[in-house]
């Protein structure tokens, strides 16, 4: 492995300076559960690793009037051990509590999961159905993009050289909103999704007033299944309506066959998981 230096900036501005100086020979370190493995595996060669965990806004969880702002390097356990976050963002918690094992959850962050841009990432679909925004810092200041625009290819994110993810902004929802995330793996824990789905719904007067469905491991990036989501707007959450949207999600899925599963298996899984997560989200609103 190529030796690198360690930088631990205390402010966003300092981090931008270091990242600018080293360009593509620097990467941010949050939990290290992807970046250290990839560096060691010589996927890239670094001169600098920039530990962003000492920048206060990177590890804080802040509630504003209309958002929950999760620092990009906040470890998963901080989220699922926070009862307020658990209550307001059930789909996010489904994801945060099944990424890796306990050791991984002590370090891994949703921000890191997002930047790593794996098609099978467990955290990204939940962020998509919660309409999350990415707060990105760079040499030109701060910009925000919707989370579904963050992943642009396997392992590729939408950030330019010198930019890094500061936080994830989740809009606060009312009590008629809920969400759910489920993946299929052949084991109980510690595996990569063969296929996975996150769904969110808002219910008003017995009808679905908003819906978002996102699919993982069935395309080069996590997919926002917008067409399937729209089908449910204004409809009652009946078995038949949910089934129709799930079939649409299955159509949208465009997986490959590999060691984890075949195209047919993955498409079938998307139909089943969409049905389950939609039903679960509806059930969570009702209780």
């Amino acid at each position: 492995m190529h030796p690198f230096n360690y930088y631990d900036p205390r402010t966003v501005e300092e981090a931008v300076e270091v990242l600018k100086k080293f360009g593509d020979r620097a990467k941010c370190l949050a939990g290290g559960t992807d970046v250290l493995v990839q560096t060691r595996g010589e996927r890239y060669e670094l001169d600098a690793i920039v530990d962003v965990k000492k920048i206060p806004e990177l590890t804080s969880v802040d509630w504003t009037n209309d958002h929950l702002i999760i620092g990009a390097a906040t470890p998963c356990y901080v989220l699922y051990e926070d009862p307020k976050v658990c209550e307001a963002f059930p789909g996010i918690i489904d994801s945060a509590s099944l990424i890796g094992g306990i050791q991984i959850q002590s370090r891994a962050s949703l921000g890191g999961n997002l930047c790593n841009a794996s098609p099978s990432a467990d955290g990204i679909c939940s962020l998509i159905v919660h309409e999350a925004e990415c707060v990105i810092a760079g040499p030109n200041g701060i910009r925000e993009i919707p989370v579904e625009e963050m992943c642009v290819g396997p392992g590729k994110n939408a950030m330019d050289e010198g930019e890094f993810l500061v936080s994830i902004k989740l809009p606060l929802k009312n009590s008629f909103f809920s969400s759910s995330y489920e993946r299929f793996i052949p084991r109980n824990e510690m595996d990569i999704a063969v296929a996975a789905v996150a769904s969110s719904v808002s219910l008003e007067n017995g009808k679905i007033s908003s819906c978002r469905i996102a699919l993982a491991a069935v395309g080069p990036t996590p997919i926002f299944a917008e067409e399937a989501s729209k089908m449910l707007i204004g409809k009652e959450p009946t078995e038949e309506n949910i089934k129709n949207a799930s079939n649409k999600a299955k159509e949208i899925a465009s997986p490959i066959s590999d060691m984890r599963g075949t195209v047919e298996h993955r498409k079938d899984l998307i139909e089943v998981l969409t049905r389950r997560t939609l039903s679960k989200a509806v059930e969570r609103v009702s209780v």
């Binding site: 360690y6 290290g32 250290l36 493995v37 690793i49 050791q103 002590s106």
Partner: peptide, 19 residues
């Protein structure tokens, strides 16, 4: 390689010594 850092278990292979 599991160790405990500040009350949380982690894989020490995925932590840098400087951390």
């Amino acid at each position: 390689c599991t160790i405990n850092i500040d009350g949380r278990i982690v894989d020490s292979c995925l932590v840098l010594g400087v951390e």
